[in-house]
Design a binder for these strands. Structure first.
Lengths: 331, 331
DNA sequence: TGGTTTTCAGAAATCGTTTTCATCTTAAAG
DNA sequence: CTTTAAGATGAAAACGATTTCTGAAAACCA
């Protein structure tokens, strides 16, 4: 059927072993035969059979990614970056979208085990204890994006959520006595919890009481941002700043204000999180915490490669830089 | 090392063949042994080795996707949908981002061949003749998203670009004598060419001359939309409508107008294409041609499954529905 | 020159499945 | 009571690579 090593071996007049050696750049083969074999490979247009190789070596050159919320441009950017980096290291990406469901996450871990993936990236905004357990149990070298796990065996790469939230809080409190918060889901969202921590730090520091009515729970979507803004502004009629935990929610909040004739930034300042491309092009343009999805992706991959190659990981909690960008949506 | 069929066989007191039969739901095994084997599988937590199976059967249960421009939320939606559908059919998605480079596309086709993928989806806005040739040569069952190929062997699933562009054209010409066009790349963009065709149809019909200065070439990004709007409005000072071939470009164009104190829709109407979520939340909200990325994904998968299973494909050019949605950005 | 090391190449085992073929029961048919 | 067919199961041969072990030839050394 397809061309195999055997065909190449016959054509080049050598044994299977030799062909394999040439393909794998073994030093144990003479320049001369190497050239001959390579020529045969070329002429026959031979393609290695990855299944056979994976079976024999137990290495698949596959990196599994379990993702959710890819409608978020930021996560998407991370995904693309992961793919780009993986290819550089000779790996392919196999993607599973869990839609945030534990059941599906476990399903993918199983699938991935069967596929003998070499590494795993968890690219979801929230994840449960059960997932963490399952990942650990799988013994697959893994890295978590977003959030920080206490577990030393499970490295995480993320923006410094606490510090970033502190930055925003201090900034908003320059022109306000308190501010409304459109946070991410309460359930299993490490990142949101950390950002809340940052806010609390600053509130405490300034002796401001953080009231429940300042907080609305969104799910990172445009729509939930819109709804949350409505809730917040109804509950706090003279609210003059909002910090949303994603740009999409911030843009939703902006829309609500415009729909209801609330002037931005005169009446209210709005700050988002992520720094997605769209944040520059909405009107008013959105102030936000910028983090580079591309950078996050490359860092994740670096750590993952180390884990796969059993190298020492000096630090299992890696921060990528962030920057507060002030635009038209805030004063 | 890992648990294999052999272990299961031993535990259940049967032969390898029988275990294999149970796993593959063969009818040739008695109820009794089947239960026994299944119990053993459960107890040992046995996982099939996909490499071995793929080697033996030459079936990988992998579907390759070559994509580009995933920063476009619409394509992203298609990707997620493809993944969801693939899983239902027992396939995994392996994704390669070509960044629109032929070289990378060819590279992925090669990789995918080695991985023995069962099907391929080309999910890029533009593709060249060379790519088409390579896909054909690969003999992998393939489906193209977007654009229509004349080739009967290569099915394509897409919105009816011609008709959709006609709809927009007729709509805009109700309140204008002509309109500006922010099109997609000239190079290899079947979809853009088709939309131009639709525009030309309507222009001809109404005896309007399509001048070069009405047309600006973008790349589907926010930024290019902004730049193109600038060009168009400079070249056509009293332009009062713009049709952009993506929502992102339309949003960029809106931004340019707002930045330059051009009132939407009083001074100018703007219509986009795709119907991405953001189009609802920008201000003014964007009129656009809605098409469902999810639906596109499921349709693509349906066709691909037919190709993989060697079923008859009655129609190798499938249209998904579209709908012109009128919002605040147009009158 | 004879012995020792190096260098290169091949034979064969192996990875974990699926599948063909053969075998052995047991039930149905005559 | 034989003969046949059907129903279950097992043995063994693939699938296409890698790798260990072994051996031949060439190169080195004294």
């Amino acid at each position: 059927m397809a061309i195999t090593m055997k065909d190449v071996a016959k054509k080049a007049g050598v044994s299977l072993s030799t062909v394999s050696r040439v393909i794998n750049d073994s030093s144990l083969v003479s320049k001369d035969t190497s050239i001959r074999v390579k020529k045969a490979i070329d002429e026959l247009d031979y393609q290695i059979n990855d299944s056979a190789r994976a079976l024999r070596t137990n290495i698949s050159n596959l990196i599994g990614i379990i993702g959710a919320g890819m409608d978020n441009p930021f996560l998407m950017e991370v995904l693309i970056s992961l793919e780009t980096e993986a290819i550089k290291d000779g790996y392919n990406i196999i993607y599973g979208d869990s839609e945030g469901e534990l059941e599906q996450e476990l399903y993918y871990i199983n699938m991935f085990k069967q596929k003998k993936i070499d590494g795993l990236v968890i690219l979801t905004a929230n994840f449960s204890e059960e997932l963490i357990k399952a990942v650990k149990k799988s013994k697959i070298p893994s890295v978590f994006a977003s959030g920080y796990l206490e577990d030393p065996e499970l490295p995480a790469v993320t923006v410094n959520n606490i510090k970033a939230a502190e930055d925003v809080s201090r900034y908003l409190l320059k022109t306000a006595d308190y501010f409304g918060i459109i946070r991410g889901p309460y359930r299993d969202s490490v990142a949101s919890e950390e950002r809340m921590k940052g806010i609390i730090n600053v509130f405490n520091n300034k002796n401001i009481e953080l009231k429940d009515k300042y907080i609305a729970e969104g799910d990172f979507s445009y729509k939930s941002g819109y709804e949350c803004a409505k809730t917040l502004l109804n509950n706090n009629p003279n609210l003059n700043s909002i910090f949303a935990f994603s740009d999409q929610m911030a843009i939703g909040a902006i829309k609500y204000c415009i729909d209801n004739n609330i002037k931005i930034p005169q009446d209210i300042s709005i700050v988002g999180f992520d720094g997605i491309e769209a944040s520059k092009y909405v009107s008013p343009s959105l102030s936000t915490v910028f983090q580079s999805g591309t950078e996050l992706g490359t860092e994740i991959m670096k750590v993952l490669m180390k884990k796969i190659n059993n190298e020492e990981i000096e630090n299992n909690k890696i921060f990528i830089p962030h920057k507060l960008i002030k635009r038209e949506s805030s004063k």
